[in-house]
Design a protein around this nucleic acid. Structure first.
Lengths: 129, 129
DNA sequence: TATCAATATGACGTTAACGTAACATTTAGG
DNA sequence: CCTAAATGTTACGTTAACGTCATATTGATA
C-alpha cells in the first residue's frame, strides 16, 4: 500500500485547500499526516476519503463539531471503540435530527410547490384576461 | 385591525431578541416598525408571522440572504410583483435545491441506520460470546 | 549542487448573524 | 408630575470556518 501523497495531490483530489486540511488536522477532524522529523506531511487514501465524507456531511448542514461526532463511524472498525452505548446514543440522536430535517424540508418543498402553482395560475388569468 | 405591539411583545411571541428584530430591519428582511417621529416602533401581526416564517426557513439551512429571496412570496399578493418570471425561476431553483437536500439527507439517514444496526449486531456478538 | 516550486508555520483578516455593554430617551403607571 | 421599566442607538465583541499574506524550509530536478 504505497498511497503516500503530499498535500498538493490530496487537496486537489479532495477539492479543498491546504488551509482546510491543516485546519481540520488542528481540530482533530482528520489525523495529522505522517512525516519524518520536521519535513513535509504525507497523507493516505483514507484521509482523502475522510475529506470527501466530511464534505458530504457539511452539505447536510452538519457543523464540523457534529461531524466529528460521527465521522469515525465510517472509518474505524467497531472493535476499537470504547464508549459503545454513548456512540449508539449519538447515532440515534443524529437519526432523529435527520428525520426532523427531512420533515421540515418536505414541508418547505410543499410550500414552494404551492407558491409556484399559485403564480402559474395567476399568470393564466392575467395573460388571457 | 388594532394589532399594534411594541418590540417587547413581538420578540416574546416570536421567540427572538430585540437585537434580532433590529438586525432584520437593517438588512431589509422585515419592514421597519412604524412610529411617530422619534419615538418607539410599533409592529403588526404580519411582522410576527414573518419572523416565524424566517425561523422556519433558517432551520432548513437557508441563509438570511436566501430567505430574503423568497420571504415575500408568503406575504404579498401576487398582483404587486413585477419581475414575475424571475420570481418563478427563483422558486423553481429553491425547489430543486430542496429536492437535493432531501435526497442527501435520506442517504445520510440510511447510513446512520446502517451504522446503528452494525453496532447493535456487534453488541449481540460480544455480549453473548 | 544550485534552484525553484511546493510545503510549513505563524498571524492577522473575513463573513454571517447576532450578543452585549453603555448611554440617551420614551412611555406607562402611581 | 415623577419615576422606573421599556425602548432606541452606537459601537465593540463573538463564533465558525476558513482566506490571505509573509516568511522560512524542504525537496524534486536540471
Amino acid at each position: 500500500m504505497n498511497d503516500r501523497m503530499r498535500i498538493g495531490d490530496l487537496t486537489e483530489r479532495a477539492g479543498v485547500t491546504p488551509r482546510t486540511v491543516r485546519y481540520y488536522e488542528s481540530i482533530g477532524l482528520i489525523p495529522p499526516g505522517e512525516r519524518e522529523g520536521h519535513g513535509q506531511h504525507y497523507y493516505t487514501e483514507e484521509t482523502l476519503a475522510r475529506l470527501r465524507k466530511i464534505d458530504q456531511l457539511k452539505k447536510l448542514g452538519l457543523s464540523l463539531d457534529e461531524i466529528r461526532d460521527v465521522i469515525d463511524l465510517y472509518f474505524i472498525d467497531p472493535s476499537g471503540i470504547q464508549p459503545k452505548q454513548k456512540v449508539l446514543a449519538i447515532l440515534r440522536q443524529h437519526l432523529a435530527e435527520a428525520d426532523q430535517k427531512i420533515g421540515a424540508l418536505q414541508q418547505f418543498r410543499a410550500d414552494l410547490q404551492a407558491n409556484i402553482e399559485r403564480f402559474e395560475r395567476w399568470f393564466e388569468e392575467t395573460e388571457h384576461r
